[in-house]
Simulated assay, not measured.
Amino acid sequence: MARTVKEWIGKTDDTKIPPRVRERVFDRAEGICHCCNMPIKVPFETWDADHRIALINGGENRESNLAPAHSHCHIKKTRQDVAEKAKVASVRGKHIGAKRPSSKLSGKKHPKPPLTKIVQHRRSLYEPIQPQERM
């Protein structure tokens, strides 16, 4: 009987997953991508340890929340997670009355000041320089 290993839990959300934990996650899922249910061909395809419940959506940085995913599947899932978080934040903001500011400011527009032409007097390249008077 194999020795049981204590579950890995990251100290913070930014804690990198150790290689031994990535290996256990891959073995536990038998090398199947949890997004598309296709096998991950290890030497030819790259894979990531993906959080089943994303950290931004309340998931935990622990071994039981990790699953292997193809790199391209992981990118798609991350996009979906971010979109879900944005929608939840928008609905929550409407419910609690914290309206998000619009991109344009409302109100009366101020007229632009008229453009004035600045005239600079320059001497010609061939205009003689007037000698200064000595005192």
Rank of each mutant, 00 (worst) to 15 (best):
K77W: 00
K77L: 09
K77F: 04
K77Q: 14
K77N: 07
K77H: 11
K77S: 05
T78R: 00
T78H: 11
T78V: 07
T78K: 06
T78M: 06
T78D: 06
R79K: 13
R79G: 14
Q80H: 05
Q80R: 07
Q80F: 05
D81W: 03
D81F: 02
D81R: 01
D81T: 01
V82K: 12
V82I: 15
A83W: 01
A83I: 05
E84H: 03
E84G: 04
K85Q: 11
K85L: 09
K85D: 10
A86H: 10
A86N: 13
A86R: 12
K87T: 12
K87S: 09
K87Y: 00
K87A: 09
V88N: 05
V88R: 11
V88K: 13
V88I: 13
V88L: 07
V88H: 04
V88W: 04
A89W: 02
A89C: 03
S90V: 03
S90W: 07
V91P: 01
V91F: 00
R92S: 03
G93C: 01
G93R: 10
G93E: 07
K94F: 02
K94Y: 03
H95C: 07
H95L: 15
H95M: 14
I96C: 06
I96R: 13
I96K: 09
I96W: 04
G97W: 00
A98K: 12
A98V: 07
A98H: 03
A98P: 03
K99R: 09
K99M: 05
K99V: 05
K99A: 03
R100C: 00
R100Q: 12
R100N: 06
P101E: 10
P101H: 04
P101Y: 05
P101I: 06
S103N: 08
S103F: 10
S103V: 12
K104T: 12
K104C: 08
K104Y: 15
K104A: 10
K104L: 13
L105K: 15
S106L: 11
S106C: 07
S106K: 14
S106R: 13
G107E: 06
G107M: 02
G107T: 01
G107H: 02
K108P: 11
K108W: 08
K108Q: 10
K109W: 03
K109G: 04
K109F: 05
H110V: 09
H110R: 11
H110C: 04
H110M: 05
H110E: 12
H110Y: 06
H110K: 15
P111V: 04
K112W: 00
K112P: 02
P113G: 11
P113R: 12
P114R: 03
P114V: 02
P114G: 01
L115C: 05
L115E: 08
L115A: 10
L115Q: 11
T116Q: 06
T116W: 00
T116N: 02
K117E: 11
K117T: 15
K117P: 00
I118H: 14
I118Y: 08
I118W: 02
I118R: 15
I118Q: 14
I118M: 08
I118G: 04
V119D: 00
V119C: 00
V119Q: 08
Q120V: 14
H121E: 14
H121Q: 15
R122M: 11
R122S: 13
R122V: 15
R123F: 11
R123Y: 12
R123P: 02
S124C: 11
S124D: 15
L125Q: 13
Y126T: 13
Y126W: 14
E127F: 08
E127Y: 13
P128I: 11
